[in-house]
Design a binder for these strands. Structure first.
Lengths: 190, 190
DNA sequence: CACGTTTAGGAACGATTGTTCTTGACTGAC
DNA sequence: GTCAGTCAAGAACAATCGTTCCTAAACGTG
């Protein structure tokens, strides 16, 4: 019963994720959102409650439909090089790592719910990165190695995030690719 | 001639840099600035012209008084491990890498002047990182190595930025330290 | 065809944004 | 002591912010 919706909620969330991946949260106004999302103010507030609600939905969507598959590909990569290539590949669809990057920098420090989601996403990325490093390593896990292994994993995700950051802010793609290859090669030894 | 100033311009710029290193540009209002800087609206606009003018001054200040010395220490580090430790050391004074990080993520995409300063800063960081990698390497630079060497340098700065990002957004300090040590060790080989 | 219910459309809200205006206080030079 | 020039103090500006209210439109059901 009632008038049918003139918009697809999932599509709106997806578009919102794209917008939020491009500009800052504070830099993205409700006017921007209603203009680019094809949904009107009233429906937006009826559906998501607030700007923050829409943002959280968009972030959740991006983590689930964009980051999760990427994590899967990283975890099953043949080695660090393939993992880095997967992570830095231009996202044909979706927002890739950008929304996570922005969320970590600007929202996590002031929004505990965002901070939790970001921390969880980073942890998952770490596990996948660790798996990719371990992939071509055989099974050389003594006990004293576990600390170094986890350190290597967070280092790999940190490098990927840093490279994505540089790609976003103007560093040439070939330079980023070279850097990705260089670090993957170093992690590959042994 | 004229009434003397009731504030120290350099101190204002330094404090502004600290504020901008903590919150977003859009998330930092003029009210916030005048409240924390001890300078009044009129003087602020008389001195810096606009919010963006103050931001650019703060960013320039941070790059000059905070990043430049850090770059020097990295360039003269005995090796990657020492370089990473220098870069990730909690900034006793100043804004460290945080303002650069935020500028790269949120302002560079929408402000070409910021983008230029960020690109230059990254390039300088790359050179210093390259020097630190080369430090314990002897002088094994054939021609075909130059691409890999520069790739390794940008990879190192990317990793440092990524680790700083993670430290900012909640990852434990010991995990970050382990990751820094792990990557530095890998770059150290040879 | 009313009825209840859900959405769309758009005006309107108070609050906050970045910026400017007005007035008066303080200074060195004449 | 007057004058020009700089600064402080705070009110005030128009614009935009996120949010809400009101009315009309479109449905399923009786």
């Amino acid at each position: 019963m009632g008038r049918p919706r003139g918009f697809d909620e999932a599509e709106v969330v997806r578009s919102a994720a794209e917008l939020f991946a491009g500009r800052t949260y504070d830099g993205t106004s409700i006017d921007d959102l209603v203009a680019h999302l094809g949904v009107h103010r009233n429906s937006l507030y009826k559906t998501f409650g607030s700007k923050r609600g829409l943002y959280l939905a968009a972030l959740r969507w991006s983590l689930e439909h964009d980051l999760a598959p990427l994590i899967g590909r990283i975890a099953e990569a043949a080695g660090p090089l393939e993992a880095v290539r997967e992570a830095l590949a231009a996202p044909a669809t979706g927002t890739g790592l950008d929304l996570l990057l922005l969320a970590a920098v600007e929202r996590a420090p002031v929004d505990t719910e965002v901070a939790g989601m970001v921390a969880e996403a980073f942890a998952a990325l770490d596990r996948a990165a660790g798996a990719s490093v371990r992939a071509d390593d055989g099974d050389s896990d003594s006990d004293s190695d576990s600390d170094e292994a986890s350190g290597l994993a967070t280092a790999l995700t940190a490098a990927v995030l840093g490279l994505r950051l540089r790609a976003r802010s103007g560093t040439s793609g070939t330079a980023v690719d070279r850097a990705g290859a260089a670090i993957a090669q170093r992690l590959d030894q042994r």
